[in-house]
Nucleic acid binder design. Structure first.
Lengths: 228, 228
DNA sequence: TATCGAATACTCCATTCCGAGTAATCGAAG
DNA sequence: CTTCGATTACTCGGAATGGAGTATTCGATA
């Protein structure tokens, strides 16, 4: 059981919109878009309509009326229930107060990076830094626009947060790339050696048959960890 | 079309394991566990078996043999194909070099935080900091254990990365909580006022009928943004 | 005034995911 | 020697996801 009856964060955004006033799903989507919330909460129609239906099923919102103009598709207007309001507050409080594990793709990559040779990994990180700086540039520009429009900071803190996280990532990646290049990162020699031997045609299993002999005594730990 | 034929990062971990030697799925799972990779890549059995099957279907791995000991379930041993190897390298290179949007739950929360009153949000952030510090403590302890065992840093950079990100998050959240408490965060007064009026029984729509009158001239922007 | 692209307002459904369940075996303690 | 929890090794089905498709209308341009 996933603690929340509806667990997609998009549902929280829906409750947030309906806390203001009743809306129909498409209006919710455009509201979220114009406010820039779709940059922090993944929004696509498939999920939106599924989530709205699920919220209704669980009594957190109710449909108020269905109207149609001309031969356009129907628009069902939803409003939040008392139960929905308290779910909204409780859920939002939980999101703000309770750290949760978020798996990022960089973490996945880092955890397996020894699968590529050190020089290549360093180069890839240098590429990444270029990309990160471009993203950061975009965020800073967007912040400036919001500021010039007079939008108070409270309504775009998530952007500041992204900026902070991206900055920390840039710092980390630059440092890591340098430490790989200079072989100051612990184990880089063993790592490089493994790839040299593999490039020379030796299999991983052959290398690991005698790690210390093939790779040096730093590799003892690998021998200990890899055998069953 | 999701660029990769198999897009779950767990598939990358599977390919990584099979790059070393042939294994059966359960062995892959235990290998990933003992190496601590399941902290960076979500691992559950349902996904593991689905992903293995999908990798096979797409020709990135092949089953080598199926054996059974006693009346235990069958164990099918898989090995990586040449195509699988190049997919592994290509995919890993992409993960390392190319930033992607990762939606976090905190970002979702931040983007909607105006839905709760400022004082409460500040308190929630203070709670979060406690939790984050506990997590950080655990990570630092784990790093020490790895270091004492002599495990070279290359094989646990992902942990350092998590540490860096969590530290940046703590800094951000502490600063934000302080700026809310001291009302130095732009718009905090308007924000507080909205919740005071709502607590006094006024609806959001009533408030927004005359934002400047109800909330002060800082709220002009809200009027502009909220009407259609 | 005819056309064409953008916006409106969804629907569909093939994957993918993931938590819970199952069933056998092993090892240690009493 | 027997019981009980941990480990081994998966299977299953319901829920979530997300991209592509559909049908109408509006507004600008030629």
């Amino acid at each position: 059981m996933t603690r929340r009856r509806v667990s997609n964060p998009l549902a929280l955004a829906v409750l947030s919109c309906l806390s203001e006033r009743p809306m129909h799903p498409y209006e919710i989507s455009t509201t979220l878009r114009t406010r820039g919330k779709e940059h922090s909460i993944k929004l696509n129609y498939g999920s939106l309509y599924a989530v709205v239906e699920s919220l209704q099923k669980h009594g957190l919102i109710t449909s108020r009326e269905t109207l149609r103009e001309g031969r356009r598709p129907e628009r069902t207007i939803y409003e939040i229930t008392a139960e929905g309001s308290s779910e909204f507050e409780d859920w939002l409080a939980e999101l703000l107060s309770t750290p949760v594990r978020n798996y990022t793709s960089l973490e996945a990559g880092l955890s397996l990076m020894a699968g590529l040779p050190p020089a290549e990994v360093a180069r890839l990180f240098e590429d990444r830094v270029v990309g990160l700086r471009i993203e950061l540039g975009g965020i800073v520009a967007a912040e400036k626009v919001a500021d010039d429009m007079g939008l108070p900071e409270v309504f775009s803190v998530e952007t500041r947060f992204r900026q902070a996280m991206l900055t920390a990532e840039v710092d980390f990646v630059i440092d890591l790339a340098q430490r790989i290049r200079s072989e100051k990162l612990g184990g880089t020699e063993v790592w490089r050696r493994i790839h040299e031997l593999r490039a020379a045609g030796m299999s991983y299993e052959q290398i690991m048959a005698d790690p210390v002999g093939n790779l040096g005594k730093e590799a003892q730990i690998l021998a200990d960890n890899i055998d069953r």
